[in-house]
């Protein structure tokens, strides 16, 4: 039986920790660990970005992460260990906004579950980005209408 950890951290006081994610999902029964790290990109839609402030409705975000992890275990086996931490607060370019780690007996499940977790989180978790630009302007990114389940996510095709 795998282990699951989900949380939201305020990045100004507690930066996300890639190695902690990897360590959490590492178990002797695994043949694979997969890691996804989301970071702030320096350009978005032609604009030069200084940083991003992440706004999160924390209790519902944690609930959505837990729901999505449970679905991944139902799809690819209860042996999966899963770690999801999303950042809240302001990050500079290159700052880590989300860490997803998956531990699994075999690599195929580790890759698939990792992709599933990030795509579902992007459409189903209450998180918003306020981008800060080098010209001094700030703007909330357009976002995607909230989906409530995997079927709705399949109808949206954003894989940027």
């Amino acid at each position: 039986m795998g282990r699951v950890f989900v949380d939201v951290w305020n990045v100004t006081s507690k930066p996300l920790n890639v190695m902690e994610g990897l360590a959490f999902v590492t178990q002797p029964s695994n043949g694979a660990e997969s890691l996804f790290v989301g970071a702030v990109r320096e350009f978005n839609q032609g604009k030069s970005v200084l940083g991003v402030s992440y706004d999160v409705f924390e209790p519902l975000a944690r609930q959505s992460f837990a729901d999505i992890c449970k679905e991944a275990q139902e799809k690819w086996g209860e042996a999966l260990s899963l770690y999801v931490v999303h950042g809240k607060g302001r990050l500079k370019v290159g700052g880590i906004s989300v860490v997803i780690a998956v531990g699994s007996p075999h690599r195929d499940e580790a890759f698939k579950a990792s992709r599933y977790l990030i795509e579902q989180i992007k459409h189903r978790s209450p998180v918003w980005k306020l981008e800060h630009y080098t010209d001094g302007d700030s703007e909330w990114t357009q976002g995607c209408e909230l989906c409530t389940d995997e079927d709705q996510v399949k109808e949206h095709h954003h894989y940027e």
Binding site: G38, Y54, V56, F57, L60, A61, H86, S97, V98, I118, I121, K122, H123, R124, S125, P126, V127, W128, K129, T141, Q142, G143, C144, E145, L146
Partner: peptide, 8 residues
């Protein structure tokens, strides 16, 4: 209120 989301 949950406007369109953009996590990740």
């Amino acid at each position: 209120i949950i406007p369109p989301v953009s996590g990740g």
